[in-house]
């Protein structure tokens, strides 16, 4: 059996007074997207730096594709692709020239590096821009080229450190699409993100990190299940007694919102909606809206770390600390 792409045990790293990693463990399985989810300063980038041999940890052991990051750094570097925060590309060189240079530095012959570069430019939709300076690229194009550069030598493990931070929604979708294609082609990806919907969209497995420690781990679905089941939200029109409606539907009234919240049973949200519709039909009540509400990773995150999700600038999203039911942004958060 081949060595797992990455195992980390008991990582500790201090920067002066600040503890960046505090007994951090991680195991990444082959062929999957593993998301490292946490707020700013949680230790995500420090962890990636240690995994990619850029940062020495104070204690702990990391093996990447079976190689120890300290004793066998060169073998680790040959097995990984690193796409760091911000785009680490040569702005003056053309897109193709960047890829060829990184390929040649990986030991590829000139011709092989060119062929691989063209292949990646095509795959990432950059063929038309291949012979332009990177400084003329849009944010999304740069990020895709950055990811392509990380893939030049078909790494066993690709690190993507906050790949969509600072991108507009369209560019973010382009990057997500690129990540899905990478995984479909068989590369294991370790992704760090502070965006919950990003982990939800891309990851097979999520490790939630805060203050340098693992606070939760599991599949996105599993983490959400920890937060309880689905809910059906029924909005009653004016003139309907919300309390009475709540008792007939077996839910809880929110009179201020003219809303009834029905917790779904173990059979799930769809069954709960069916039951609510049947009950409404029997009662002969016409309602304004019926909404099936699944717990989002935002809620999981909030309950695990005590911090709300943050915007790109690191300031809390307005209203993020309000109850999730009152927060329409989490509802539309998936795009």
């Amino acid at each position: 059996m081949p060595a797992p792409p990455l195992t980390a045990r008991g990582l500790h790293k201090r920067y002066g007074e600040t503890t960046a990693l505090d007994g951090f463990d991680l195991e990444v399985e082959a062929g999957a997207v593993h998301a490292l989810l946490g707020p700013n300063g949680a230790g995500k980038s420090t962890a990636v730096g240690v995994f990619a041999t850029l940062t020495r940890c104070d204690a702990g052991e990391v093996r990447v594709a079976g190689h120890d990051v300290r004793r066998d750094a060169v073998a680790v570097r040959a097995a990984i692709g690193l796409v760091g925060q911000g785009t680490a590309l040569d702005e003056v060189l053309h897109g193709r020239e960047n890829l060829v240079m990184f390929g040649r530095l990986h030991g590829m012959a000139r011709q092989a590096a060119r062929e691989r570069a063209d292949e990646l430019l095509e795959a990432f939709g950059l063929a038309d821009a291949a012979d332009r300076k990177v400084s003329t690229y849009s944010g999304g194009m740069r990020r895709r080229l950055d990811i392509a550069a990380g893939l030049i030598r078909r790494p066993a493990l690709l690190f993507l450190d906050e790949p969509t931070t600072g991108l507009d929604p369209r560019a973010r979708n382009e990057v997500w699409q690129a990540v899905r294609e990478i995984v479909a082609a068989g590369t294991t990806v370790l992704l760090t993100t502070q965006y919950l919907d990003e982990a939800d969209q891309l990851a097979d497995r999520v490790t939630v990190i805060d203050h340098g420690r693992v606070v939760a781990e599991g599949s996105p679905g599993g983490l959400k299940r920890r937060m309880g089941g689905d809910r059906v939200l029924v909005t009653a029109p004016l003139g309907v007694d919300v309390e009475a409606l709540a008792s007939s539907l077996g839910g809880v009234a929110e009179p201020g919102l003219r809303q009834v919240v029905v917790e779904a049973g173990p059979e799930g949200g769809a069954a709960a909606v069916t039951a609510v519709v049947r009950a409404l039909d029997t009662e002969g009540v016409v309602v304004d809206d019926i909404l099936l509400r699944r717990p989002t990773l935002d809620e999981v995150f909030l309950s695990l770390t005590g911090t709300g999700p943050t915007t790109e600038a690191g300031v809390p999203v307005p209203g993020a600390s309000r109850p999730a039911e009152l927060h329409p942004a989490t509802e539309g958060g998936r795009s």
């Binding site: 041999t53 073998a75 690193l82 760091g84 911000g86 040569d90 702005e91 990184f102 530095l105």
Partner: peptide, 13 residues
């Protein structure tokens, strides 16, 4: 500053 040095450092060179 731009991270190019780090990218070089993560290469097997």
């Amino acid at each position: 500053k731009k991270g190019v040095t780090d990218r070089f450092r993560a290469l097997p060179i």
